[in-house]
């Protein structure tokens, strides 16, 4: 391992960009919320006239979301350059890279499917992640310990982040599915896609996430075999990776089981996603294990 000279001033610039991304996200969230209010109070004129046209506030919201994504992306890249390695070796870096990928996956998916209705969830969720990263998880840029000096850090972790990104979008869909299925705020939810459409899109995202998660699990085992001389040892992080895998496998089963689709499957997908969050926060911070890279 050659000596890496950390660029601390660049890492300060990175922090500035990441923090500014929060402001843009907050603006986007306000604009999207405003749009939801407008939709729920609007009369028939929208339905009759220009239901499919983006309203001004929604369009402005997506401009803000794109700006937030680009600014955040610049911050993530600068952090990587400052550290002389991939920017996902501790909780802070994992969080900002994760938020960036979630936004990127959502904005890309938007080109294929109409997922505008979860824009509030996506911008709000990314905002929470970055806020937690900057206020709770922040660490100065560091050289990584020998255990993390492996190309598996690049593969294993980036795929884990991508899986989390797909699971996040699906979780947003589950939440709006359950809200719509509860029958409340009919005026608003009637303008959203049908329950069946929501369920199908959520399934798609969970399927991609599940395949990526399986890959993360296998890549992690290969790395563990090299670094810790066993491919699986029920380390706390391995346990939770396994639990999450089983829960999503359960969700996929539920989607093929009579009587378990719909609300039950949505709840199951949501529970699985909460385990992903639990794994990243509580397990990292409070459980003892070999994955001690949080740097806190």
């Amino acid at each position: 391992m050659t000596q890496v000279v950390l660029n601390e001033s660049l890492s300060q610039f990175s922090l500035l960009f990441v923090s500014s991304a929060m402001a843009f996200l907050a603006l986007a969230l306000v604009l999207f919320s405003f749009q939801l209010v407008k939709l729920s109070t609007a009369g028939d004129e929208i339905v009759a006239g220009k239901a499919d046209r983006l309203s001004t506030s929604e369009r402005a919201g997506f401009v803000m979301l794109w700006v937030a994504t680009l600014v955040l992306g610049a911050g993530v890249v600068m952090r990587g350059i400052a550290a002389g390695r991939v920017p996902w070796a501790n909780m802070y870096e994992f969080s900002i890279s994760g938020a960036f990928l979630i936004l990127l996956i959502y904005l890309t998916a938007l080109k294929i499917r109409d997922l505008r209705f979860i824009a509030t969830f996506i911008s709000g969720f990314a905002l929470v992640i970055i806020f937690a990263a900057v206020s709770l998880f922040y660490v100065e840029v560091q050289t990584v310990m020998p255990a993390l000096q492996s190309y598996w850090l690049v593969i294993h972790v980036v795929v884990a982040i991508m899986a989390t990104g797909f699971f996040s979008v699906a979780a947003g869909l589950h939440i709006f599915y359950l809200l719509k299925a509860s029958g409340k705020a009919k005026a608003l939810f009637d303008r959203f896609p049908t329950l069946v459409q929501m369920e199908r899109v959520a399934y798609r995202f969970n399927v991609v996430g599940f395949v990526l998660w399986s890959f993360t699990l296998i890549a992690g085992a290969i790395w563990a075999e090299r670094a810790w001389h066993r491919y699986w040892g029920w380390d706390t992080k391995e346990v939770w990776t396994f639990i999450i895998w089983v829960l999503y496998a359960g969700y996929l089963h539920a989607m093929a089981t009579r009587g378990w689709t719909g609300k039950r499957a949505a709840w199951l997908g949501l529970v699985a996603f909460l385990s992903v969050i639990f794994n990243f926060t509580i397990v990292n911070l409070f459980f003892k294990g070999l994955h001690v890279y949080s740097g806190l």
């Binding site: 829960l247 359960g250 089963h253 009579r258 003892k288 294990g289």
Partner: peptide
């Protein structure tokens, strides 16, 4: 299928204590 699903969920729950206790 229903019971395969329940067994899967049970497996996930049963794995939890192993991360709580050494």
């Amino acid at each position: 299928m229903r019971n395969a699903l329940l067994l899967l969920l049970l497996l996930a729950i049963a794995a939890v204590p192993g991360s709580v206790y050494p």
